[in-house]
Design a protein around this nucleic acid. Structure first.
Lengths: 116, 116
DNA sequence: ACCTATTTGTCCGTATGTATG
DNA sequence: CCATACATACGGACAAATAGG
């Protein structure tokens, strides 16, 4: 995986990072389960700030492409689907949420609050 | 709208802010079209950092609750709905997910996949 | 058309907390 | 217990869009 960013480009650095890492995942050049470089390492090698990398990583996490765990780093997500019933429920909930014009983030947060 | 945050609480400050502003919107105590205080003002009055407020505002924007524009501030989005049915559905889904031993983020990922 | 103040957006830096291994 | 690595919060600086005079 070869990553570069262009500070002169109109797009923000963190978005450039998100796009290139996402493309690497979608194109298969980064496999499921593979570990991305640590935020610090990547920041250093790209000569950008740690937070810029962390922000990109968090966007990718929100998009479901990677999992972030403290002490472990960023791992490309495994996707499994054996939960037929759950998926059906989710499908109904999502269409209801769409009807209400909610965003995925809003629904996720409401669910998180309902969790406890 | 009366907003407070508790630095000692386990939840991050920005999440507390998101939750309380969102509740204020959903409960109708903040009307559509109304302008939230500027990030700097709110940060000062809550005695927290500007960036913490900006982050909360950006989450609310991603969730579709407010619109953010430079030079204009944060304006509550048009939204006249009834969320009771949705909350009930969420409650059912969450207990189902708990039964299956899913994590909240796993469920969020599934929902995001189901969205498109 | 110009200038200025306002306000969010991004980025950098630093410090501390917290889960993982 | 200790090192790792993300998570949050603080601070400062400048850019960019908006609104108003």
């Amino acid at each position: 995986m070869l990553l570069t960013v262009d500070p002169a480009a109109p797009q923000p650095l963190f978005e450039q990072l998100v796009a290139s890492i996402r493309n690497a995942i979608l194109s298969g050049s980064v496999v499921s389960g593979e570990r991305l470089p640590t935020a610090r390492d990547l920041a250093q090698s790209l000569d950008i700030n740690l937070h810029t990398v962390l922000r990109a990583y968090q966007v990718l996490r929100d998009e479901g492409f990677i999992e972030l765990r403290r002490g472990r780093g960023a791992v490309v997500t495994e996707r499994t689907r054996d939960y037929e019933q759950l998926m059906a429920d989710i499908g109904r909930l999502v269409s209801e949420a769409k009807r209400l014009d909610l965003t995925p983030s809003a629904l996720s947060d409401l669910i998180r609050e309902a969790w406890t």
